[in-house]
Computed example of a mutant assay.
Amino acid sequence: MKFDRAIEAFIKEFVSDLANKNVAIFAGAGMSKSVGYVDWPSLLSDIAAELGLSVDKEHDLISLAQYHVSHRGNRSGITKNTGGVFSSGRTVGDAQNPDALAYSGLLDHELRHAD
């Protein structure tokens, strides 16, 4: 496959960085959805409903979360809502995740099973 010069330069630099173990993956919440975790719309649907909004109509979910915090005057609703989701003791592959989403195990699982 032939890429333009900018893409070719990126690939060359990325492969070099990868060989030097100098890369990171930034993955969004949707990546964890395929193994049973929630995505941002699901995570914030109750919070949006409390504000009389719908995640189906809101496109900036970070601002929705911040508005909820500002509206309440604290982040207790966000903390309570996310705490129950990420402390459920779910298992991803062989990794037990009792207190938080184990990104390394999750990423490993997703990358191994990517199309």
Score class of each variant (00 low, 15 high):
E110K: 10
I78K: 03
V69Y: 08
V85W: 00
R72Q: 12
D46T: 09
L101T: 05
K33G: 03
D46G: 11
S88R: 05
R72M: 09
A29D: 03
Y37C: 02
F14Y: 15
I11C: 14
V35M: 13
L101C: 01
V69P: 05
R75G: 09
G73M: 02
V23F: 08
E58H: 11
H109A: 05
N20V: 05
K80H: 02
A65Q: 04
N74M: 03
M1W: 13
G77N: 06
V92E: 08
G84M: 01
L106I: 08
V23K: 04
L107G: 15
F10S: 11
L101M: 03
K12A: 15
H113I: 04
A65Y: 03
K21I: 06
A27D: 04
A48Q: 07
Q66P: 01
D4H: 15
G105F: 06
R5E: 12
P98R: 06
D94M: 12
R112N: 12
Y67G: 04
S70Q: 14
K80V: 00
M31W: 03
D4G: 15
R112C: 11
N22V: 02
A95C: 11
L106S: 07
L61V: 10
I7C: 13
R72L: 07
Q66R: 14
H68K: 15
S34P: 00
N22K: 12
A95S: 11
Y67W: 07
M31R: 02
I7E: 09
D60R: 15
E58D: 10
A29L: 01
L44E: 04
F3G: 03
S104C: 08
S54A: 15
G30W: 02
G73C: 04
R90I: 06
I78E: 01
A9L: 12
G93Q: 09
T82S: 05
I62N: 10
Q96S: 09
K33A: 14
N97V: 01
A48H: 07
S54I: 12
P41I: 03
S76M: 02
V15M: 13
V55S: 10
S88E: 00
G28L: 03
N20R: 15
S63I: 11
S87Q: 02
V23D: 04
